[in-house]
Design a protein around this nucleic acid. Structure first.
Lengths: 206, 206
DNA sequence: ATGACCATGTAATCCGTTACATGATTCG
DNA sequence: CGAATCATGTAACGGATTACATGGTCAT
């Protein structure tokens, strides 16, 4: 399983289940997330296995917190996972499946509307990731050479999110252009040229 | 759930569970897949719900096959799903999580090796998808304007796979460049220029 | 005091994978 | 005859989501 190892990774410093959940919301939602109802039992199981230990923190102010930290065995297991080569899981994109079957609607306007809504949702998410990128590396990657080893790796992971999301937005644009062309097959010359111009515009955005 | 709807979509023509599984292996592995052990019970459940019906085909030659076809209600449900707006599921990329935590190894060569292996696996997959794209639209999209409505939508879905995979390969290259730069921080001038050259190369490949 | 938020957990259910079981056909 | 492939299923387990339950703190 992977969630176990992700929890081990998140526990570089001692933290509670609640803390870890907040950690997900910030800079890593594009590659993993989990609900508290999954995190709490998982932490308990990891403690039973000896990879974590916990203590109840005295509630100086606020409710009590159960704070976990890695054991030596826990750290060893994390390192084992990190050196086991890239774990390629199965991908599931329900919205691509929808598009794949959308000819059943027999209505290119419906397909177009679908892609427009998808584009706007993807761009929303992209904006969040660009902000995370900015927070780490500064404008134009100004701070890039001064990052700690930890932040450097986080930066690389965030870049994957940015590139991945941007490629999907670009894909929406390409698909919308194809759809337009198909809807007006006898438009004036230069459909290909228009596509070319758009490509160049997309590239400048790099 | 989505598998239900994907099965409904796959059953544009009557097919057995085995047929559907083969359908997954071909042109849609980049956005969904399922095992036979998941497909058979799901089909049975869909029949109980009245969205499918099945008959046992007389085994003229070969073993017996249970062939499913959509009912009217099944088709209605499929259309409902297709018009319900893009379904944005949670993404899980275990290998990005690995990178995210990889500073724990404190060894940039390990990170570099990791990215190299990842790159080669991604490129392998990309080659399969490019082939699928070629099979549908021909070289340089020559057949693009002659596609049926069905093939057109399939083409759009395949393009998502191609773009998505290519953006991940590009990300690997970018990350490897960053890693190299970090490992030899006092190399001769022009690190940024080298990155520029690479950007232009990547763009040409479009 | 009321509602928002912090914090921890359990229960029910469903989704998905791996392993197992069965039997027929086809090819060498 | 034996191995590979076609074809259909069940069982066990584990991963993930949704709903439910509890209680404390803090600001208005």
């Amino acid at each position: 399983m992977s969630l176990d190892h992700i929890l081990l990774g998140m526990l570089a410093a001692p933290a509670s289940g609640y803390d870890i959940k907040r950690g997900f919301s910030e800079g890593s939602r594009h590659f993993w997330s989990a609900e508290l109802s999954q995190i709490y039992p998982a932490l308990k199981k990891l403690e039973e296995r000896g990879w974590l230990e916990s203590r109840l923190e005295p509630p100086a102010r606020g409710p009590r917190r159960r704070v976990y930290h890695r054991t030596t065995e826990g750290r060893t297991e994390l390192l084992r996972w990190l050196t086991a080569g890239p774990q390629m899981g199965t991908q599931r994109f329900a919205y691509v499946a929808q598009l794949f079957f959308m000819h059943e609607l027999d209505d290119l306007e419906a397909t177009s509307d679908f892609m427009l809504e998808l584009r706007s949702r993807l761009e929303e998410f992209l904006a969040l990731l660009r902000q995370a990128e900015l927070d780490i590396a500064g404008p134009d990657g100004a701070r890039l050479d001064d990052l700690s080893g930890e932040d450097f790796h986080v930066y690389l992971a965030v870049r994957m999110g940015v590139r991945s999301l941007r490629s999907r937005v670009d894909w929406c644009d390409e698909a919308l252009a194809h759809i337009e062309r198909r809807r007006r097959p006898h438009a004036v010359a230069g459909g290909a040229q228009a596509q070319d111009r758009q490509d160049r515009k997309e590239r400048r955005r790099g």
